Simulated assay, not measured.
Amino acid sequence: MSVIDHIELSVADAEASRRFYEAALRPLGLSRVVSIDPARTAHGGARHGFGRDGYPSLWFHEETGSRLPSHVAFTARDRTAVDAFHEMALAHGGRDNGAPGVRERYHPHYYAAYVLDPDGNNIEAVCQTE
Rank of each mutant, 00 (worst) to 15 (best):
A12P: 04
L68Q: 12
D83C: 00
L28P: 12
L25N: 07
L9I: 15
A39G: 07
Y55I: 15
R40D: 11
D83H: 00
A16I: 14
V34Y: 04
F50A: 06
L58M: 15
G29C: 02
F20L: 05
G45E: 01
P56Y: 14
D13G: 05
D37W: 04
Y21K: 09
P56F: 07
R77K: 10
A81E: 04
R40Q: 10
H48W: 14
L68P: 07
R40F: 11
A73E: 00
F50C: 07
V33W: 07
A24H: 10
H86K: 05
A73F: 01
D13V: 13
R40S: 09
D13P: 05
F20W: 10
V82R: 01
T41V: 13
H61D: 14
A81C: 10
P27E: 02
S70V: 14
T75M: 10
I7A: 03
D78R: 00
S35D: 10
L25Y: 08
F60H: 11
G49P: 13
L30A: 02
A39D: 07
V82T: 03
T41L: 07
R40I: 04
A76C: 11
T75C: 07
Y55E: 12
G54V: 00
R77G: 08
P56K: 02
G29T: 03
W59Y: 06
D37T: 01
E15G: 08
S10T: 13
E22A: 14
H71R: 08
H61Q: 06
D53S: 15
E62H: 02
I36W: 01
V72H: 05
G44L: 02
A46S: 04
L9F: 05
I36D: 06
E8V: 01
L28V: 02
L9T: 00
G51N: 06
V3K: 08
R40M: 12
I4V: 15
F85P: 02
A76Y: 04
G45W: 13
P69R: 03
R40T: 07
A14K: 09
T64K: 12
L30K: 00
D78S: 03
G45S: 01
S10I: 12
D37I: 08
L28G: 07
S57I: 13
V3Q: 11
H61C: 10
R40V: 05
L9C: 06
